[in-house]
């Protein structure tokens, strides 16, 4: 037995007829000091961060007129069909397609890399490390940077956006999938190993079927995120509604901008509801 460093908390008092356990909390004097140190560190970090970001709320107060003018110009939203609504809806569909293809076309790459980058399915330690490195790279490069690179290769337009999302999403989804595979109950895989199944058979017949619900949930979540990302990609020329928002700001048509943003709002809500509905059905 290892000796206890704390004083025993249980002491019996009183006569033998009526004894009670006395409540004596073990004293931990260091706890106060560590709590104070952590609090001081957090406050200090925030002070540095406020300094580093030129965080000056008074500027916001002084600049209210500019914002009011901007918002005033945006109202009422421009609802003319030919000029704003029709192109807005068409571009929104393009945004949705970018998000859809960017998600689904990254599935095979993410699946392969996830299987190689999960400890319980990876064939070798070196393969595991290499797959982790590849995933980290695709995750570390923002999708907007991929978009700029692909615009130089395939020109302005939605195709560059799809390629950018495929790259970035492979990194993120591969990591999320690898983690959910590592968290899964290892029992069925062990059972198949003792039955003489090889590694690929174990993964295909135990690990993967076990994680299907988690995989689909994460896939829907990424679809949701990717539709929103493809908006931002539009700002750098990768097509879709983001491009229209950018154009309407640059040409000072803030009422059109507001219309586009409202369409986006509807799109986001629809996508969100859709993935929530699928996840509910999966859980049932």
């Amino acid at each position: 037995m290892t000796p206890h460093t704390l004083t025993p908390a249980v002491v019996r008092r009183g006569s033998s007829a009526q004894t009670r356990v006395a409540l004596i909390r073990p004293k931990k004097p260091l706890r106060w000091i560590t709590t104070a140190a952590v609090a001081a560190a957090v406050v200090g970090l925030h002070a540095v961060a406020i300094e580093g970001t030129d965080f000056k709320p008074e500027l916001l107060v002084d600049g209210w007129k500019g914002m009011a003018a901007f918002i005033g110009d945006a109202f009422p939203p421009d609802l003319s069909w030919e000029k704003t609504l029709k192109p807005g809806l068409e571009a929104t569909l393009v945004t949705l397609w970018i998000g859809l293809l960017g998600t689904t076309l990254s599935v095979p790459f993410a699946l392969l890399l996830a299987a190689l980058a999960a400890e319980n399915t990876s064939p070798h330690r070196l393969v595991y490390q290499a797959a982790r490195a590849v995933l980290s790279f695709f995750r570390a490069v923002p999708d907007i940077v991929f978009a700029l690179i692909f615009v130089t290769a395939v020109g302005l337009g939605p195709f560059a956006g799809v390629l950018a999302l495929i790259c970035h999403n492979t990194g993120v989804m591969g990591k999320l999938w690898a983690e959910s595979m590592e968290e899964i109950d290892a029992g069925p895989q062990e059972a198949l190993r003792t039955a003489g199944a090889n590694r690929i058979q174990q993964v295909a017949n135990a690990t993967l079927p076990m994680v299907v619900p988690q995989f689909v949930g994460l896939l829907l979540y990424r679809f949701d995120v990717n539709v929103r990302s493809s908006l931002v990609l539009g700002l750098v020329g990768a097509g879709g509604i983001g491009l229209l928002i950018n154009q309407s700001i640059k040409s000072f048509q803030f009422d059109s901008m507001l219309t586009h943003i409202l369409i986006v709002l509807v799109l986001i809500i629809v996508v969100d509801q859709f993935s929530a509905w699928i996840r509910r059905r999966l859980a049932a």
Binding site: G187, E190, A195, G196, A206, M210
Partner: peptide
């Protein structure tokens, strides 16, 4: 003890897995 079958697959598919080798 914990059975270690794949719950989402059918009984038949789980039994087939015994023959994987």
């Amino acid at each position: 003890q914990k059975i270690h079958l794949v719950p989402r697959r059918t009984a038949l598919d789980n039994v087939c897995a015994g023959a994987l080798s």
